[in-house]
Amino acid sequence: MMFQVGPADTLNYMIAGYTVILGTIGLYIVNIILRFRSLRQDEALLDEIEAEQA
């Protein structure tokens, strides 16, 4: 590293890094959305059950 002229070509590592960052945050957001969705389904189901019981 000491003797090279100009910047090293490390573009691939940068791309890998940003893929991880965007991918992980994206997956987490999807995970939250999915959990919300399944909870809302449960909620609808509970509403139904309660309506039947009433």
Binding site: Q4, A8, G17, Y18
Partner: peptide, 21 residues
Amino acid sequence: VLIWAPQEAIMGDVQRVFYFH
């Protein structure tokens, strides 16, 4: 971080990971 910031003189583009890291 990807376009506007200057490229680091020795490490090159991978240094851009540093900001979000």
